[in-house]
Design a protein around this nucleic acid. Structure first.
Lengths: 202, 202
DNA sequence: CTCCTTTCTTAATCATGATTAACTTTTTTG
DNA sequence: CAAAAAAGTTAATCATGATTAAGAAAGGAG
C-alpha cells in the first residue's frame, strides 16, 4: 500500500503482520480531484475517510445560503459525517477536496468487522476520538475567549503553513465570519505602512 | 454498588461477572454537595467522572472575568477535563456541582489498566466518544445556523426538563450570551400578554 | 497569452447582542 | 422569620461584525 494509514496506526498500537493485512483488506484507496465531492446533501455517508495526501473540507449550507465549514481534513486526519455514517440517515453535509487528494476509506460494515477481528483497532479509534475531542474542546474555548479578529490572528500563528494552502474565504467560513470581515482585518494588519508618505519608495 | 454505571456500560457491551468486578474495583464513589468543586484551575484533573445522580457543570473564566460553561453533565454522562487528565498539565477549568450529586470517578491509572485488562471497556469508551463527537458536531451546526434567540428557543424545546433544573444565567453562559440578553428574549417571548387592557383580570 | 472564473478588497449602512448600572424578586441561611 | 445572598429584569448606550454592492486582482483553461 502506498498510503500512510498503517504508519499512523502504528504510532498508537503495534500491529503484527496478520493484523496489518486485515486492516489493508478492510479499506480502499480513493483519489479525488480538486473540487471533487465524496459526499453531498441527501446522500448517506458511506465511509470514514483517512486523508493520506491532500486536503478536504466538511461543510454545509446554512439557511442563509452560506457555506459553513465545520472541519478541514489534512494529511493523517480522519474526516466523515459520523452521524450519517452511524445512523444511515441522509447527510446534510458536503465533503469536498480542496486539493487533489488521496484518501483511504473504510465503510461502516468493514469498520465494524475490523473492530471485532482486530481489537487493537478498537484501541486505535478510541485514542483518535479522544484526540478529536480534546481538539474540539480547545476550539470551543477559543470561540468563547476571543473575538473574531483575535481568533484569526491566533489561527494564522498556529498554522501558518496551512493558511497558505486554502483560500481566505474558506478560513473565514471555518472561523465563523465573512470574507469581507477577514479582508477588513487584513487591511488593518500592519498600520505602519499607512504612515508611508505619498510617493515614497517601497 | 448503588450506582448506574454498570447498567450504562451494559447498554453497549455485555460484561460477565468477572469483568463487572474489575470495573467496580477500578472506580470510586464520590459525593459532591451543591456548589462543591471537584476541579479548580491550576489543579491537575485526576479522574473522568460518570454522573450517577445530580448535575455538574464544566466552565472556565474568560479574560473578561466571565464564567463560560462549555458542558453540563447530568445522569449517565461523563464529565472531565480530558486534556488535563491525559497530559497531566494543570487545568484551567472548574468542575462544579449544580445539585447535590453522586459521581463515579476513574483515575487515569485505573482507566489505562482497565482498558488493558477488560478490552470490552476499550469498546465502551470508543462508543461513548463517538456519541460525544456527534453531539458536539450537532452543537457546532446550531451555532452556525441559528442566531442566539433561535438557539435559545430550540434548546428549551429540546430539553424543557433540564432547563428547569438550572439557573437562567448558566443556560445563557452555555449558549454563549449574557443573562441580560436572555432576560430580554424572555420578555418578548409571548407578545399576546402585551395587548391585555390595563386593569384586566388575568 | 487572453478570456473567464474565482478570489479578494473597499466602503457605507445596518443589526445583533454586549456593556453598564440600577433595581426587583427569589432563594438561602443563621 | 429576617437578613443576606443569589438570580433575574429593564433600559440606555455602544461595539463587533453582517450585509450590500462595486470593483480589482489573481488564477486557470483553452
Amino acid at each position: 500500500m502506498q498510503n500512510n494509514l498503517l504508519a499512523h496506526i502504528n504510532k498508537f498500537v503495534k500491529l503484527d503482520e496478520d493484523e496489518s493485512a486485515q486492516v489493508e483488506a478492510s479499506v480502499n484507496q480513493i483519489s479525488v480531484k480538486k473540487k471533487g465531492f465524496i459526499l453531498r446533501p441527501d446522500e448517506i455517508c458511506r465511509a470514514n475517510y483517512f486523508v493520506s495526501k491532500g486536503c478536504m473540507r466538511l461543510y454545509f449550507i446554512n439557511r442563509n445560503g452560506q457555506e459553513q465549514i465545520t472541519q478541514f481534513g489534512i494529511e493523517n486526519w480522519w474526516i466523515t459525517d459520523l452521524s450519517s455514517l452511524e445512523t444511515g440517515h441522509p447527510s446534510h453535509y458536503y465533503i469536498q477536496a480542496i486539493e487533489d487528494s488521496e484518501l483511504v476509506g473504510i465503510s461502516k460494515k468493514a469498520y465494524e468487522e475490523l473492530l471485532i477481528n482486530v481489537p487493537k483497532m478498537e484501541r486505535y479509534f478510541r485514542i483518535i476520538l479522544q484526540k478529536t475531542h480534546t481538539a474540539t474542546m480547545r476550539r470551543f474555548e477559543y470561540i468563547r475567549d476571543q473575538n473574531d479578529e483575535e481568533r484569526y490572528k491566533h489561527f494564522i500563528g498556529l498554522y501558518p503553513g496551512f493558511v497558505q494552502r486554502i483560500p481566505q474565504y474558506m478560513l473565514a467560513s471555518y472561523l465563523g465570519f465573512t470574507p469581507q470581515f477577514l479582508s477588513k482585518i487584513r487591511g488593518r494588519k500592519d498600520p505602519r505602512v499607512k504612515n508611508r508618505e505619498p510617493g515614497a519608495k517601497i
